[in-house]
Design a protein around this nucleic acid. Structure first.
Lengths: 142, 142, 142, 142
DNA sequence: TTTT
DNA sequence: TTTT
């Protein structure tokens, strides 16, 4: 009915850009999000959250995100499941981003938050120019 | 750094209340969240998201939530991991709620959104009266 | 850079549908959002928040929302300003919704959260089919 | 019922720290939040949103925020009203923050997102150590 | 398997 | 000016 996540954290690695069999761009990366520090001794705790982006936004993320960069991600939590090669059903939880803000950009490369470079707000990341399309789980490149 | 989720959906079952070895209440349930309908034929798609609540909020959820009830949940996405009995590391993603709104309450039982019944806003669900405590993964009742 | 609001509350009145000079639909209403009850004696406190919707979403809201209905609104906070008839600059804060969920629908009228009736996710409410357009403040019907 | 805002933007000025008659710290500042760029020619549009913080969080904000700093704010939208000196009722919309993240900190001053410096998550900003108190509108220092 |  |  309603499903919205907002995260701020840092990339654990450079993002990975792939294409589905039908040529749709998709970029994935992991965001390290530190939990609020709980005074007590103890080490800092961190959640490592897998992020998926599609299409235009995927291209921009692939171009402008780098390992370590502070990044804001807006999207929805999704639980995908597939059968693995041992015939067991595996459940994967990930954040499908529809908005990504580059909080530490490399000015010398142009500002990714500016026009042309700016991630188009995709609305439904599964929709193309308003015409929703099907991304079949078998089409996924990962 | 920042980690916030807001969900609206329906309980797939009655919630389950348990206690940690040190007596802290925790209630878990699954929220079925329909994805926005993508016109095309196709069946309605739904994400099934595991929710965890603690303490006072856990008690209230156990008392007032029932299978099928429309419910709003606010919290953070957490990735917990543990070693299973085959010595394999298992990753579990769940939403730790710090605010739950009962959108369909049973008026005859009192309004859970009202004082006394109302879920106290717990801030950090791992903190007790401001004094943060450690919830050890081995302490978890699930 | 990032601006997201999520509200759940009740309409104080029936929504109002108007059209801009260039024929774009816009529906406005006020959402009464109760603050969390602060035990102490005292009366319940409530924020009354003006909501604006555009285009397809405006039409759906006008058709399905009614005074008193429990409703979820997702959007951004906007500060608009104009010169009033005494030549004084007036600042208006409102929530521009891009997603509205009908939490109490009138089943006999069809489910507004279902296809055809469902509020299209508009992305940028000022964008038309991906082609962003200008809504001039002078064009506003209110 | 539910009221949550998340903003990322920059301070238009240094923050202002004041105290209520009963000695409670409150810091206010304005956050400039750029709207997503709408390709067309046109100038960049920006919302200027007034932010209010209380207590411990107010002290931390006063110490660590400076004009121009990129900052994330989490809280709720509030509409306050008072009678001005001409006996007219004035409505003020502001964001009451309960979480502030310093996205550009001055490392040489210590990291405000770290323990001791870190803004305690206040839960209800009107509650003191769990004991909710009344902040009377007449008590406000602004 | 992880970031500052 | 307000909703349950």
């Amino acid at each position: 009915m309603l499903n919205r996540v907002i995260l701020i954290g840092r990339l654990t690695k450079d993002p990975e850009l792939r294409y589905t069999p039908n040529g749709i761009a998709t970029t994935t990366f992991t965001l390290a999000v530190d939990r609020p520090f709980t005074s007590q001794g103890g080490e800092r705790e961190t959640d490592f959250l897998p992020i998926v982006t599609w299409r235009q936004l995927a291209e921009t993320c692939a171009n402008y995100l780098k390992k370590g960069r502070l990044t804001a991600v807006e999207g929805r939590v999704q639980v995908r499941n597939y059968e693995n090669n041992e015939g067991k059903r595996v459940y994967v939880t990930e954040v499908v981003a529809d908005n990504v803000r580059f909080l530490e950009s490399n000015r010398s490369q142009g500002d990714p938050n500016e026009p042309d470079h700016r991630p188009r707000y995709d609305g439904d990341p599964f929709a193309d120019d308003g015409k929703p399309i099907d991304i079949d789980d078998d089409d996924l490149p990962f």
